[in-house]
Structures are given as C-alpha cells and as structure tokens.
C-alpha cells in the first residue's frame, strides 16, 4: 500500500444511499446481538436460580405466582403490532405504522399495569425478583419501540424518510421483530419457571445447616 501506486486520484464518488442503508442495518443488527446477549443472560439467571433452588427458597410458597395471561397477552399484542408495521411496508395496510405504534403503546401500558398487579413484591424471593426484572426488561424494550415507532410515524407524516433515510423504516421494522422475539423469550422463561414452581421442592429440602449440597431440582423429584 505505498502511497503512489494505490491512491487513485479520481475514484471518489459520493456514497450510494444503498451503502448507507446497509451500514445502518449492520449496526442495528449488532446492537440487537448485544441486546440478545442481555436477554439471554436474564433468562439464564432465572432458570439457573430455578434449577438450583438454593435452600429451597426460590419460591418457598406463601406468595403468589405471576399469572401467565398477562405476558402472553402482551406478547400477542406486540406480535400483532409488528405484523401491522410490516404489512404497511409491504404496501397492503395504509395505516399500519400508526396502528403498530398504538399497539406497542398499549402493550407498554399493559406491561406496566401487570407490574402493579403482581401478587408479590419484588423483594419476596428470587422468583419474584426474576419475574420482575424480566417484565421490567420488556418495559424498557417497549418504551424504546414506542419511541422508534413514533419517530417513523412522525417522519412519514413530514416526509423526512427520503433517500437513504428510507432505510430507517426497514431497520425499525427489524427492531419490531426483535422485541417480539425478546418478549417471547421472556414470557417463555416465566412460563417454564411457573410450570415447575408448584412442585414439592420446599419440603424435601434438608435444613440449611445440613452438610449436603441441595441437589434436588424439580425434574428429579416427582412433579
């Protein structure tokens, strides 16, 4: 790469919108990768604590179990919103973006209401804290989604999505899809943990002072 032979004196031309768009999409996908690692970490934490059930106190009873209706409903609303968004991009639903923003906003409100409706407080036990943080992560995702969707809606209104910036619409679409996946993973995690929370863990547990590694997880004992 010596200076002389390599620098082409007149090869520079302005970049194509396509190049910008591709670049933005790569960036967005990488951020989603980081976020995916984060979601995976939360899920892992939940299931790991569930599997260890340290001192039989993961969910020792006495406090409620989160209902699964809420998170699944929220996930469904999110999926429908994302579908609305994508159908407008495909050109078959005129107000899809507006509907999708509204849908995500509804999902956001629902999730916040859900957090107030939990039949436990975050400090009860590891189970309650884990459900709380997974739901809170969804709130964060939804808030970001509403921001992005709102931006796209406003920008369409103003005609700001010209040229390379038209890619923003598609990239936000990718984000819509990702938050649905994230919500699904979170909900699935809660469901799996919920499905095993009622099993007779607590009474089999040796008392905490005993010298043996508490090894019983739900799968090994009778369900």
């Amino acid at each position: 790469m010596s200076t002389e032979s390599l620098v082409n004196k007149e090869a520079f031309a302005p970049e194509e919108p396509h190049d910008f768009g591709e670049r933005w999409r790569v960036g967005a996908l990488l951020l989603i990768l980081a976020d995916a690692a984060f979601v995976a970490a939360l899920s892992f934490s939940f299931l790991y604590l569930r599997a260890l059930d340290t001192q039989g106190s993961f969910h020792p009873g006495g406090t409620g179990v989160a209902t699964l209706w809420w998170p699944w409903t929220v996930s469904a609303v999110m999926v429908l919103s994302a579908l609305a968004y994508w159908t407008q991009l495909r050109g078959s639903f005129a107000n899809g973006v507006a509907v999708s923003v509204a849908g995500m906003a509804v999902a956001l409100v629902l999730t916040i209401v859900q957090m107030y409706q939990f039949p436990f407080t975050v400090s009860d036990n590891a189970y309650s804290a884990a459900v709380w943080i997974i739901t809170a992560a969804n709130v964060f995702h939804l808030a970001l989604t509403v921001f992005l969707g709102l931006g796209i809606a406003i920008r369409r209104q103003r005609g700001a999505n010209r040229g390379a910036r038209d890619w923003h619409v598609r990239i936000v679409g990718i984000w819509y899809t990702w938050v649905c996946v994230a919500a699904f993973v979170g909900t699935l995690t809660i469901s799996v943990a919920n499905g095993t929370v009622g099993c007779p863990l607590a009474k089999d547990q040796p008392d905490p002072g005993a010298r043996s590694v508490p090894s019983s997880s739900c799968s090994s004992s009778a369900r």
């Binding site: 604590l49 106190s57 590891a126 309650s128 804290a129």
Partner: peptide, 12 residues
C-alpha cells in the same frame, strides 16, 4: 431488596 444473590431468599 431483591434476592438474586441472597441464599436464604433462593438467590445464588
């Protein structure tokens, strides 16, 4: 006051 890392609340 969560219990993620507190053994007597099921944390680890």
């Amino acid at each position: 006051g969560g219990g993620f890392y507190v053994p007597n609340r099921g944390g680890q």
